[in-house]
Computed example of a mutant assay.
Amino acid sequence: MTSSSASCSRIQLSEMTDEELVIRAKRELFHTTVAYEELMRRYQRTLFNVCARYLGNERDADDVCQEVMLKVLHGLKQFEGKAKFKTWLYSITYNECITQYRKDKRKRRLYDALSLDTQEEAHEPEQPAVDSKGLDHWLVHVNQVDREILVLRFVAELEFQEISDIMNMGLSATKMRYKRALEKLRKHISNPF
């Protein structure tokens, strides 16, 4: 395809409705992604702005946009057209933003727990210096059982009784291991060497 025919094709695509592009994309995928790319080009900026405003930062918004585009790419063949493409796209976007928000909320709960005063479980003014990419790095500093307790508590958001039932441990032993694991992580965060 020459550059002039590619630009002609781009002009023709830009004149198509969303519904026409969806039909064409469903027919072409995965041999070519031209119609899909045009759909994403139309909504990319607004999609990013929606995500950025919902999530509060551009890094997470960019990640969610990429995830949305992949979900659209892989789900377009099953899109039945009962709703408008735009509605379907923003439904996926909303769900991905909610998922990201919940992940961030779980991370914040863990970070808050790492900054707890062990006696009173009250928040300290300083947050630990842990970034979201470093979470796995910090969890390697506790043994497997303690890591499982922390993951069940903060990722699965289970209560101590549920964790104790799952792990076949007494409730007091579960709480004690949880507190000790947090204390060990606190020490690594405040003195990483």
Rank of each mutant, 00 (worst) to 15 (best):
R24P: 00
R45Y: 03
C51Q: 10
D63V: 02
K71G: 07
L39Y: 11
Q78L: 08
N57L: 04
R42L: 07
R27I: 08
Y43I: 03
F48T: 04
T46F: 07
E20H: 10
A25M: 08
Y54S: 06
I23L: 10
T33P: 01
D18T: 10
L21A: 06
Y43G: 01
C65V: 15
Q44Y: 15
T32D: 08
A35N: 02
R53F: 06
E58A: 14
Y36K: 01
C51H: 00
L55S: 04
E28N: 15
V68I: 14
K77A: 06
M69E: 10
G75F: 12
R27G: 02
V50P: 06
M40Y: 02
K26M: 09
A52P: 01
V68K: 05
E37P: 00
R59E: 12
G56K: 08
Y36C: 01
I23A: 14
R42F: 07
C51V: 02
K26S: 11
H74K: 13
C51G: 11
E58Y: 10
T46P: 03
R59Y: 11
L21Y: 08
L70N: 03
F30E: 14
E58W: 05
L76H: 03
V64E: 04
H31V: 12
T46E: 15
D63R: 10
V34P: 00
R42K: 15
R53T: 09
Y36S: 10
E67D: 15
Q66Y: 11
L55Q: 07
A35I: 07
K26Y: 01
F48I: 03
T17N: 10
L73W: 10
T33M: 09
R42S: 06
E38M: 03
A61M: 04
E19H: 09
Y54E: 08
A35D: 07
M69K: 10
K77P: 00
K71Q: 09
A52I: 00
V34I: 12
Y43K: 11
T32V: 14
K71H: 14
A61Y: 00
E37K: 12
H74V: 05
R27H: 14
R24N: 05
V72M: 14
R27A: 05
Y36H: 12
T32W: 00
L70P: 00
T32L: 08
Y36L: 15
L47A: 09
A52K: 15
R45P: 01
L39K: 12
I23G: 03
N49M: 10
D62G: 14
E20P: 00
T46R: 12
R45T: 12
V72P: 09
E37N: 15
I23S: 05
R42A: 09
E19S: 14
E67W: 01
H74F: 15
G56P: 09
E38G: 00
G56A: 11
Q44L: 12
R45N: 05
T33H: 13
Y43V: 01
A35S: 13
D62V: 06
A52Y: 05
L21I: 06
R42G: 06
E19L: 07
T33S: 15
A25P: 00
K71P: 04
V68P: 13
E38W: 00
E19N: 05
Q78R: 15
D60C: 10
G56V: 04
L29A: 06
M40V: 13
R41E: 13
A61D: 07
K71T: 13
V34Y: 09
E20S: 11
R41Q: 13
